[in-house]
Computed example of a mutant assay.
Amino acid sequence: MGAPIQPRFLACGDTAVTVEFGTEIDDEVNALCLAFDEALAAAAIPGVVETLPTYRSVLVHLDPLTIDTAGFEARVLGVLGGLKRSTAQPKRWKVPVVYGGEFGIDLEDVAARHGITANEVIRRHSDRIYRVAMLGFLPGFCYLSGADQSIALPRRTDPRVKTPAGTVSIGGVQALFASVEAPSGWHLLGRTPVRNFMPDRDPVFLVGAGEEVVFEPVDASRWDELDRAAAAGEPVAEEIAA
């Protein structure tokens, strides 16, 4: 993998360490985080309790009675020395979205602020292959890289206290596929019936970090049918060929 990888180790109390690989949103850095997270799991280091990969770092929870931070850092450097990034084609999911109206209450405003039509916003937003950089904030929230910057907007100055589960939105340079009802300062373009997080389903998380998402615009008349299927545990999102 070229030059040795030299992450920063940042203590998070006495039971966790952040292993930081970069300081910006970058697909290469994120791919490194995901590869490291996978390799760390395979290494099965005693004392590693849980890992949480993000855009640019991996938070590692430790059992301090089993391993100290110095010992952990030494083991990490060993893992990084043999790290290989996956060359496998990631899963790609087609996710249905109802855009605009009550499902995407900011669509018209986003269009007006860019001087284009709502249909053009939909076209630009759905004509992308997004990469799931991380799951975060709340269970199953998909933070997506690859957003069309021609429709980007800063986050809202007046965040909403509540936005619906399944919200599909944009904010800054990012795009989002939400999972549960939550507060948000992002711009709501549409909504998907897909439940990316269902604690009683196997798998609990449908779409994972490192996978890909394409959005399929669907008519509002299909919402009830798709929403019922998703509530019953059906994926609704379709795995497609890359």
Rank of each mutant, 00 (worst) to 15 (best):
F137M: 15
P53A: 12
E238M: 08
P235I: 06
P139H: 06
V29E: 06
Y99I: 03
A178K: 02
R131C: 01
H125L: 07
F177M: 15
N119Q: 12
T51A: 15
P46A: 06
G13C: 11
E181A: 13
E239Y: 04
D224M: 10
V207G: 02
R222G: 02
I45C: 12
N196S: 01
A44Y: 02
N30A: 08
A74I: 08
Y55C: 08
E120K: 04
E238S: 07
Q149G: 06
H61P: 09
L188I: 12
P7T: 10
V168Y: 01
E181S: 11
A39Q: 11
N119E: 15
S150N: 09
G104E: 09
Y130K: 04
T117N: 11
F197S: 10
Q174P: 00
V48W: 10
R85S: 14
E108C: 02
A182F: 03
D158Y: 14
G82F: 03
Q89V: 15
F205K: 06
P139E: 00
E120L: 13
S126D: 03
D200P: 01
A175C: 11
G171K: 05
E73Q: 13
A44I: 00
D37K: 06
G22S: 09
P53K: 06
T163G: 04
F177C: 14
P154W: 08
F177P: 05
G81D: 14
S57C: 14
P7I: 03
R201W: 04
G78K: 00
A43I: 07
R160A: 09
A230P: 04
Q149I: 08
E102F: 01
S169V: 02
L83M: 05
M198E: 14
D224G: 04
A112N: 15
H187P: 00
A220F: 02
A74S: 10
L34D: 05
F9S: 07
I122S: 06
E73C: 11
R201S: 08
V207M: 05
T18Q: 11
G140D: 09
D219A: 15
P64T: 09
L59D: 07
Y99L: 07
G2I: 14
P96M: 02
V213D: 04
G115C: 05
F21T: 00
P46G: 02
E234V: 03
D14P: 07
L65I: 09
N196F: 00
A220C: 05
D148C: 12
K84H: 14
D106S: 12
L80E: 03
L32P: 08
T51D: 06
L176N: 03
R155Q: 00
P7S: 09
V76N: 08
D200S: 00
V213H: 04
F177T: 11
C12Q: 14
L176H: 08
A41S: 13
G233T: 00
E181T: 13
L52G: 01
Q149W: 02
F36Y: 08
F9Y: 15
R8S: 11
G171D: 08
G115K: 04
E225H: 03
A152V: 15
T192M: 05
E225P: 02
L153V: 11
R201P: 01
G82V: 03
L153N: 09
G172C: 07
A3C: 04
L52A: 13
A44E: 11
H125P: 06
G104L: 03
K162A: 15
A35Q: 03
Y99M: 01
L40G: 10
K162D: 14
A165Y: 03
